[in-house]
Design a binder for these strands. Structure first.
Length: 292
DNA sequence: CACCAGGCAAGCC
DNA sequence: GGCTTGCATGGT
């Protein structure tokens, strides 16, 4: 991959194993929206890490608009996971017939390195919910309590900090219509602001310890913590099992037989090992886009 | 109207 | 340990 500065924009050429729609639509993030741009195959605008980014792609070229080389190297390269060798991961996983199909379908998936706090709240909101409404609630949380950001004459909102959320009452937060999850959101904010949970130290912990810490937050159980571990703490052997993954794994590997989650976890650990998280994303995207 | 949606906690055994 | 039920809200 080579990087070219073009005015205020940054052009990445010879990008491989990456496609915007695969990465942004595979269910790991909720704040990226597709836009139309001439001369590109795909384009998105999103808010992440307190910044608005417009990004577009044509074939193997990706353009980050109004982005300095510093911001790319310090922020976006890591966020978009550009330094990982996805070809090597795909080689290993493709040996499995099902994964081979899933990878051919979602060949451009990258696992983003998201903000831990945003990830915790987003997946607390995801519980017993559907994706359009998850996006709607998160958007409302940002509009009501985040900071205003302007880009090209449009207004966007950052994801509100835990310090801001911790000061809210249940009544305050009821405007976002998150239902029974409201108290979980407040609990997470309070545990983080009080220092009971130190987000920074989670990164250095092993998977089991980090998971134990995360599940001490109300509303964070097995599945939500696995998502946080995978999408923001670089624990790539996590294999979050939601209803879709459960159904899909049962269909492809257990002759459509109802199987306990504990057994699916065991199966995934043995079958995919250190690449469990990547396998999960390929399967999730494949099954969501084709089974429906 | 019943049922479901990227689950989880609490209560039961 | 495992199993069941209630949970806010909005969409079919």
């Amino acid at each position: 991959m080579d990087i070219i500065v073009s005015g205020n924009d940054l052009i990445l050429n010879s990008v491989s194993d990456f496609k915007l729609s695969h990465t942004f639509e595979c269910g790991q993030c909720f704040r990226w929206n597709m836009i139309q741009m001439q001369n590109f195959d795909e384009a998105y605008i999103g808010v992440a890490l307190g910044k608005v980014l417009k990004i577009a792609q044509k074939n193997n070229s990706v353009v980050l608009f109004d982005t300095s080389i510093n911001d790319f190297q310090n922020i976006w390269s890591k966020y978009l996971d550009f330094s990982r060798d996805y070809a090597a991961i795909k080689d290993v996983l493709s040996k499995d017939e099902i994964l081979n199909k899933a990878i051919n379908f979602g060949y451009g998936i990258h696992i983003l390195n998201q903000d831990i706090w945003e990830c915790i709240i987003s997946f607390i909101i995801s519980a017993s919910n559907n994706i359009p409404r998850i996006k709607k609630i998160i958007n409302s949380l940002c509009e009501n309590f985040g900071d205003k950001l302007e880009y090209e004459g449009q207004v966007y909102y950052s994801f509100p900090k835990p310090e801001k959320i911790a000061l809210l009452s249940l009544e305050d937060i009821s405007v976002i219509k998150s239902g029974f999850r409201d108290k979980y959101i407040l609990d997470a904010a309070k545990k983080i602001v009080s220092g009971e949970i130190d987000l920074f130290s989670l990164k250095d912990m092993d998977r089991t310890s980090a998971k134990k810490k995360l599940t001490s937050i109300r509303g964070v159980g097995n599945k939500v913590s696995d998502c946080v571990l995978l999408f923001s703490l670089e624990k790539y052997n996590s294999f979050p099992i939601d209803v879709w993954i459960k159904r899909s794994v049962e269909k492809y590997y257990f002759s459509s037989q109802d199987t306990p989650i504990s057994e699916i976890e065991k199966f995934a650990a043995e079958k995919f090992g250190e690449f469990g998280g990547f396998a999960q994303q390929y399967i999730f995207f494949y099954t969501r886009e084709t089974d429906k």
